[in-house]
Design a protein around this nucleic acid. Structure first.
Length: 389
DNA sequence: ATTGCCGGGTT
DNA sequence: AACCCGGCAAT
């Protein structure tokens, strides 16, 4: 009883005669307490880990974050001063994801499913891999990984792009300043026009069937290229850069081209998937790190220390832009899950002791004063035969 | 402190 | 075998 009082408080007190439920009540209370304890511990742990990973991640993801900030008209700030504002910006972006422009890409279901659709579909991209987290932060293919990481780097003037496809992407991004041509990104159509209006018309008429409702959708099917960049690009790169650039209302704007689509693409599927993602993420926090490290990752020791930092930067931006607003539910959920896991031993422990108090015994039923009504075993201080466990 | 009951003693 | 109880673990 004293134990009950101390653990469950006065509300859970059971009378001596009500001891039948004592065990159950106590178990529930115990698990509650355990849950709270685990939750606190997990929250604390996760928050600590987050805090550790955060600064380093800030440095690496500064680009994406600042771009996001720019999309909500927040001035660029140094990484050291951005933490809270980034969270706010991410939340704002999340809320902004419901804007018509952002949603429009997902309305193209009847269209043939080229890479564009997959990419601009938002949810399809993030969930295409399957179970959310791994498909998000685990780039399914090297090309995507590289693209993701280069996405972040290209916007970051402080980082040096790497050779290979990244160069191409860089040129693609850099062409913004030297824009001159527009390439149709429709699958198997690489038409290049020098006029945006012409390109829109081309897309609308040839690919969108001239539909009136496709009024704004042409933006998603062409990309702006520099006139000298006519060599074909790998599909993964082209289809990524294209829709992303065009998802914004003004495709030629480098900042919005990156921030808006990313937020839109993920926000549509984020609230549920990211929720699960972070759950699994924390759950798998002990998973090997190096396996997910991109070969292009900057050789920073900070990047090898925290798991999140090893993710492609765009992935991190996704997670953050969408999930920061969801962080609390996630965090509240994660400990719950960990509690479920960690509670099993405690449950097993309780199972051993479960028998006691579970069943009424003669002593409890009749009381000491009516001992004559006890079963023989109880009278002999043996295992009760009338109310066996 | 109370309870359940094992182990052992006594008759 | 019937009965009783010390003592322990669990609560």
């Amino acid at each position: 009883m004293a134990a009950v009082k101390s653990q469950a408080g006065p509300g859970a007190m059971q009378s001596a005669t009500g001891r039948k439920n004592y065990g159950l009540v106590r178990h529930c209370v115990q698990e509650k307490a355990d849950a709270q304890k685990h939750r606190q511990n997990s929250v604390l742990r996760s928050s600590v880990g987050f805090g550790e990973a955060w600064p380093a991640k800030l440095e690496q993801t500064n680009t994406v974050l600042s771009l996001q900030s720019s999309s909500v008209h927040l001035p660029y700030r140094s990484p050291e001063s951005v933490e809270m504002d980034e969270i706010m910006a991410a939340m704002v972006l999340t809320s902004l994801s419901c804007s018509p422009v952002i949603q429009s890409p997902t309305q193209r279901d009847p269209l043939p499913h080229g890479p564009l659709d997959m990419e601009c579909g938002g949810g399809e991209l993030s969930d295409s891999g399957s179970s959310g987290y791994w498909s998000w932060e685990h780039a399914p293919s090297p090309s995507v990984t590289e693209t993701d990481s280069s996405m972040g780097q290209l916007g970051d003037e402080g980082l040096h792009p790497e050779p290979g496809a990244r160069d191409e992407l860089e040129s693609r991004w850099c062409k913004v300043s030297s824009r001159g041509a527009y390439r149709c990104l429709w699958p198997s159509c690489r038409k290049v026009l020098t006029s945006r209006v012409g390109m829109k018309r081309h897309i609308r008429i040839l690919h969108l069937g001239g539909a009136e409702q496709s009024h704004r959708e042409e933006d998603f099917y062409y990309t702006e290229v520099s006139s000298e960049e006519e060599e074909p690009t790998s599909p993964s790169l082209s289809f990524i850069s294209g829709p992303w650039s065009s998802c914004s209302s003004t495709p030629s704007q480098p900042t919005s081209r990156e921030a808006l689509p990313s937020s839109s693409a993920f926000s549509q599927s984020a609230p549920s998937s990211v929720w699960q993602i972070h759950t699994e993420h924390l759950y798998q926090a002990c998973a090997p790190i190096e396996m997910t490290k991109s070969p292009d990752s900057p050789p920073s020791c900070e990047w090898t220390s925290a798991r999140l930092q090893l993710r492609p930067q765009i992935s991190m931006s996704r997670s953050r832009s969408v999930s920061v607003g969801e962080q609390w539910p996630q965090r509240n959920n994660v400990p719950t899950r960990s509690h479920t896991i960690s509670a099993s031993p405690s449950r097993g422990h309780c199972a051993i002791r479960k028998g006691r108090g579970e069943a009424k015994k003669c002593r409890k039923v009749y009381g000491v004063e009516r001992r004559d009504q006890w079963c023989t075993a109880c009278r002999w201080k043996k295992a009760c035969q009338r109310f066996p466990d």
